[in-house]
């Protein structure tokens, strides 16, 4: 009868962790789905101004333009004047048209006519720079723009 040796009694069975991978995978898939990988490196300061009359931006048909002072680690190289960034490099105002045409071509062809330009401009920038950008957009006939802002009340600042 030595075949049926009794196990040593009194041990607490280990917690079953078989379902742990499933749980982790579920979380993993959630984050994979909601993740947007940052596609451009910000070269300018970007504190957005506040506003509360907001509309949502349709992402698949938008082109981003950033503007502001170069951020602190680029200050030595590019100075402190307000600059425009499209994609991941600084763009001169005369070059905006070219860069935007390029950015527009990267979008899906059926959405290229409905393109919306999202302006992410630092709150300390001068309006003159924004006006220059808008003039370029009018020349290009990209007339739909959206000023990206942070939610908040602009009056109590």
């Amino acid at each position: 009868m030595s075949k049926f040796k009794k196990k040593k009694g009194g041990e607490i069975p280990a917690v079953n962790t078989a379902s742990l991978p499933d749980i982790v995978f579920m979380l993993l898939f959630f984050f994979m789905v909601v993740t947007v990988l940052r596609d451009n490196n910000l070269l300018v300061q970007n504190t957005l101004p506040k506003a509360d009359q907001l509309e949502k931006l349709k992402k698949d048909r938008s082109v981003y333009i950033y503007a502001g002072k170069p951020s602190s680690r680029y200050k030595d190289k590019y100075g402190t004047e307000g600059k425009i960034q499209i994609g991941d490099k600084f763009t001169d105002i005369s070059n905006v048209k070219f860069a935007l045409t390029e950015a527009r071509e990267a979008l899906r062809p059926e959405l290229q006519d409905k393109v919306m330009v999202a302006l992410k401009v630092d709150e300390e920038t001068n309006t003159g720079l924004v006006t220059d950008i808008k003039q370029q957009l009018r020349d290009l006939n990209m007339l739909k723009i959206i000023y990206i802002t942070a939610p908040g009340n602009p009056v109590d600042q």
């Binding site: 909601v34 993740t35 947007v36 949502k56 992402k59 003039q135 009018r138 007339l143 000023y147 802002t149």
Partner: peptide, 18 residues
């Protein structure tokens, strides 16, 4: 770590044609 849940909102405008 790489996730940024972006929530871009803003004031939409139509520019006048040039």
């Amino acid at each position: 770590v790489t996730t940024t849940i972006e929530k871009d909102k803003g004031i939409a405008r139509q520019l006048p044609p040039d």
